[in-house]
Structure formats: structure tokens, C-alpha cells
């Protein structure tokens, strides 16, 4: 478990160094996600070294968003000032994006992987 967390944190740290060093728009943790895949693929890291830590983090992923959500309270005035365009656009657009993404994938998947269902 400790080894797994150490590996994840080292990869995140490397990601942060690459992100700030090259001034990339992609944050270090997202680069770290790619680095973990790379490390697993190149067999630098074995799946059993990290799987416990991964399982623990991913099964509680939703919890880690709570503090950012509570941060919304600081910007109530901003949200209240133009609540109508903000709420309508946020809600509708979220559903439209899910529909378009899902339909496009479904349409293409029928041609690509029909054997897979």
C-alpha cells in the first residue's frame, strides 16, 4: 500500500515538473496519469505494486471533490448576479454534451467493434 502511494506521488511529481518546466496547459496530475500507463507498459512498475493504492483512491474519488465544491460558497454573489443564463446553460449543455458524445461513439462503435458486444 505504502509502495503504491509512493509510486503515484513520484509520478505526479514528475508530471508537475514536466508541466511547469515546459509551460504546458496540461496539469501535472493528468501527465502523471499518462506516466503511470507508460511505466506499467514498460514494466518499470508492476501492476501488483500499485493496485491496492489505486483501488483505495478510485473507490473514494467522489469524496475528494467535496472541498472544491464547498469553495463555491465564496462565489455565491457572482453566481447570483447572472443565475439564469448560468444555470440554464450549465444544465442544458451538460445533457447535450452527454448525448452528442454518447451518440457519436455509439454510431462509430457499431462499425468498429460489433464482435465486442
Amino acid at each position: 500500500m505504502v509502495r503504491g502511494f509512493a509510486i503515484l506521488l513520484v509520478l505526479q511529481f514528475l508530471g508537475e515538473i514536466i508541466s511547469t518546466g515546459l509551460n504546458l496547459p496540461i496539469p501535472g496530475n493528468v501527465l502523471g496519469m499518462g506516466l503511470l500507463m507508460l511505466a506499467l507498459g514498460l514494466k518499470l512498475v508492476r501492476t501488483e505494486w500499485v493496485e491496492d493504492a489505486v483501488e483505495l483512491l478510485l473507490s473514494h474519488l467522489a469524496l475528494f471533490f467535496v472541498p472544491a465544491g464547498v469553495g463555491v460558497m465564496v462565489y455565491f454573489d457572482l453566481l447570483a448576479a447572472e443565475w439564469l443564463p448560468i444555470m440554464v446553460s450549465t444544465v442544458l449543455s451538460t445533457f447535450v454534451v452527454m448525448a452528442v458524445t454518447g451518440w457519436v461513439a455509439k454510431l462509430l462503435e457499431k462499425r468498429v467493434a460489433p464482435h465486442d458486444r
Binding site: 502511494f5 503515484l8 506521488l9 509520478l11 505526479q12 508530471g15 501535472g28 496530475n29 493528468v30 502523471g32 496519469m33 499518462g34 506516466l35 503511470l36 500507463m37 506499467l40 507498459g41 501492476t47 500499485v50 493496485e51 493504492a53 489505486v54 483512491l57 478510485l58 473514494h60 474519488l61 469524496l63 475528494f64 471533490f65 467535496v66 472541498p67 472544491a68 464547498v70 469553495g71
Partner: peptide, 23 residues
């Protein structure tokens, strides 16, 4: 946020961890 930031911190390694199911 004095305490909240510790929970928020775990979001970082969790995003890295998303590479595992992808692999």
C-alpha cells in the same frame, strides 16, 4: 479549508491512479 485542503490533495494522486484502469 485548513482541513479541506488535505482531502483535496488526494485528488492529485487519484488522477494519476486513473492511468491504472486505462492500462
Amino acid at each position: 479549508a485548513v482541513g479541506g485542503k488535505y482531502i483535496l490533495f488526494l485528488l492529485g494522486p487519484s488522477v494519476v491512479a486513473l492511468g491504472f484502469p486505462l492500462y
